[in-house]
Amino acid sequence: MTFGAPRWLLVPAAIGAGLILLPLAGLVSRVPWAELPTLITSDSALAALALSARTVTASTLLVLVLGVPLAVLLARVDFRGRTLVRTLVLAPLVLPPVVGGLGLLYAFGKRGLLGGTFEALGVDIAFSTTAVVLAQAFVALPFLVLSLEAALRADGTRHEEVAATLGAGPWFTLTHVTLRRVWPALVSGLVVAAARALGEFGATLTFAGSLEGVTRTVPLEIYLQREIDADAAVALALVLVLVSLAVVALAYGGSARAARRVTERAA
């Protein structure tokens, strides 16, 4: 084993890894393996899993549709206040989720900034699945924007300029040149956004409420079960951990492979 770093780094590094791995080990140590199949197929668990699958799909699509244009504009168009917009768009990354939930409430709630508008349109998002999707998209969007914008900036505009001189229109250039070159970042950003949406808890609880099959996603079900049936909570938590780890592995492993392919093709 070659060691390309000061050896004493091992100590804080091991503590750091332990900080992350020990809670996961603690969780696994409490998993009631024998009852696991029964626990994760109970009516309430299945309702939560189905709701999470539906809402995460919807919010990830929303993130794709809204996040790609946002990232492209932030990376390619030089406008006044761009830095400010970028900072604000990334705010959900650092905001406590409950603060995000309050913000959503004051924007889209019945008495929020747009509450009257929604009421006039006959849309009632209070306590609805739509509210869950909005909360998830709110917290997940910055992950895609961050990943995609960084890739776009790193890639530069050389290829786009060449495409333009060859007569490609802006739309063709965007879809066939720009996005094609940052494809790995787009995919990994989207996957991480989906994982963040899956784990969304605070904003959902504050903004959407908690009702089985409507707003009670897997994290909310875990929070509720924790107080009645800790075994059921741990069983669902295990499912969430495994799905999230798979997602992260897919995002990083997949994007690394794709990045190699893109580099090889370019070379």
């Binding site: 709630g109 306590f127 609880l205 409420g209 089985e212």
Partner: peptide, 21 residues
Amino acid sequence: SPVSEEQSVTDVLAKVTSGQA
């Protein structure tokens, strides 16, 4: 037929004072 079953009584109150419920 509640639209939400909250985790604590203060969460219920917050939904009422904010006008959501």
